[in-house]
Write a protein that binds this DNA or RNA. Structure first.
Lengths: 360, 360
DNA sequence: CTGTTAGCGCTTTCAA
DNA sequence: TTGAAAGCGCTAACAG
């Protein structure tokens, strides 16, 4: 690689702009001084600082990020890892948005990576995303999507600071098993049950595949809330498929077959809820006239369907922002922060619930 | 910063792993040789290569990306810029997925950035995303979302290789005005019209806000196809709102108010189409019995609604992959490739169309 | 085939 | 308050 301390030559040789040395020479100061000005560090007289700034402007100088990163041994890059998801659905899109906002506010950039591996907890064949494995590539990682807890631990052990999205963790037995951010399904679920009860409902059933941990957590919150209001929890389990639309359809079928009295259905999430409403409609049952439905997530489809869906709101952007904040704290104070952080949920009332039909 | 050529000291001092020098010393070779082995460059005997690999394994060495980037003056990073969008909707999620697949296949990582600016073409107050402006941060950029053509040109002029998503470009007068990738609405639109015509439809109306360039392009494709099939194009324009749901509702209202004979509606996109179906249903009109509807995009909601929506498929992942391929070609052969690239569209038939109702 | 050396552009002592 | 100089870890040209 040619040396070329001459600015013009270097520019001609490759699109490599002026360097700090060029600025220093033009301003008639040392490189160190330019660096100090650049980083707003104290100990430079206003007079020289002005000279330096003038030179910077004149040359159209911008610092070379790579060089700075090498010298400081950091990257200012955060990696957003989406694990075991086909693509960014609305939920994680909004989480990503929250992460992005926070990062750009604190001057960090965001690397996006997908990661796929079998979720059975067998780490033997799992390799971390290349960008994480490459030392120095990123300062830390946010593990979103669905992760197995052992994989999160493995990344941590690599020495990469990381924070995981809690609710989709597989094999996690307690909140703070790894550094993570969760949404707390309890407050919103409680509100939903209270709301349905106040409408007069007593037979509220929960529909989902509770072999999936996030649905299992929702179900637990539902059960506790039901008991607190003196109602009997009842589950419509469709545990042999992970296709949300199918879960909804099959739940309705099972419900009607069983003949159990039911005036409201609490769906595991909005997709299931919408599917339930459609399946009900196909059988001539109208929501909320004949039966009430509440969803979970508060996704955009809540207002795109008819009737508009009452749903438990999950603050996805706040969740993302919290992940980013937590991670950056970990990065800047290694070993000083850890545990789980939680954001709350609440009910958003729309049109899909009504008092139970009087069965005279 | 302490020197520390001693491995142990350096590791204790900071989590900075072994360097190429440590490997060289352990293997009893020079740094250059290690570098050659690392990069699979020829000119190393298998014997020494084995020694080096052994040393690498023994030390658990991984190359420092930043140092390599500085030395080679490149970042191996591609920036995916989402412009003027609140967040990643399904469409761009899939584009991003396509970009990610391609990039990870060729060993490049992906930086995600949001960019907001007024779309009126007034560049005065527009600043490029920081990551783009920072020299050396990324090797190139994919400009997705909705961009004003002048902003794309401005980024190019910065010396950053870039490729834009064409269909959402504002102020673009011809395909190859900037390096871009487009989906071609013609083939799919033509198929849709042919299909409706073969079903017996003659009164097919297009519903959208054609002040939005993407809808305008769809409308033009629709018009041409109609004329080719000897049919008269007819537009239901709702040009005073950009809310797709509202466009659908208002289009139906306008259609019914006008009393014009209409047996099929070609919606500007799927959201408009679904909204049209719902608005129709509220007025007692059933799709496809009373009227046929076709959408555009082929988004996931096509199979989540009832009836399932017949729609023109846009190959979003392929589009993203093409953006990435194009950009990487530009990066590796500066000035040698340019222009516009196009991916095709096709019709996906589902349940929302039927022969027109016999109005006896 | 291989070791040595001179950078890449920036930060950070250290001495003045 | 400042300049000089020694790195950061790697690549690439050059000499052997």
């Amino acid at each position: 690689m040619p040396a070329g301390s001459d600015l013009f030559l270097r520019m001609a040789w490759q699109r490599m702009g002026p360097s700090i040395a060029d600025v220093a020479k033009l301003a008639g100061v040392g490189k160190g001084t330019v660096s100090r000005v650049l980083n707003g560090r104290p100990g430079v007289s206003e007079q020289t600082a002005a000279k330096v700034r003038q030179a910077i402007r004149q040359l159209g100088y911008t610092p070379n990020v790579q060089a700075r990163r090498l010298a400081q041994n950091k990257s200012d890059l955060i990696c957003f890892v989406l694990s075991n998801r086909d693509f960014l659905h609305e939920f994680h899109s909004l989480v990503l948005k929250g992460v992005e906002s926070y990062c750009s506010k604190v001057g960090r950039d965001l690397v996006f990576a997908l990661w796929r591996y079998p979720l059975d907890g067998n780490l033997a064949s799992v390799v971390p995303p290349r960008i994480i494995a490459n030392r120095g590539s990123v300062d830390g990682a946010i593990l979103a999507g669905a992760n197995h807890i052992e994989c999160v631990k493995a990344i941590s052990k690599l020495g990469v600071p990381c924070v995981a999205f809690g609710n989709n963790l597989i094999g996690c037995t307690y909140l703070s098993e790894v550094d993570s951010v969760w949404y707390d399904e309890q407050p919103g679920t409680r509100e939903a049950i209270r709301y349905l009860a106040s409408l007069g409902h007593r037979h509220i059933r929960f529909a989902a595949n509770i072999s999936l941990p996030w649905f299992a957590r929702n179900y637990r919150a539902y059960s506790e809330a039901m008991l607190d209001f003196g109602l009997a929890p009842a589950l419509i389990a469709v545990n042999d498929t992970t296709d949300y639309v199918e879960i909804g359809e099959r739940a309705v079928q099972e419900l009607l077959d069983s003949g159990e009295p039911t005036t409201a259905i609490f769906a595991g999430n909005d997709v299931v809820a919408v599917s339930v409403i459609r399946a009900l409609a196909r059988r001539g049952l109208k929501v909320p006239r004949d039966i009430s439905v509440v969803g979970f997530d508060d996704s955009p489809r809540c207002i795109e369907c008819d009737p508009k869906l009452t749903s438990v709101h999950v603050p996805k952007e706040a969740l993302g922002a919290e992940c980013a904040r937590f991670l950056i704290e970990k990065i800047s104070a290694p070993g000083r922060v850890s545990g789980a952080r939680v954001v709350s949920t609440h009910l958003v009332v729309r049109e899909s619930c009504a008092p139970p039909r009087q069965t005279s």
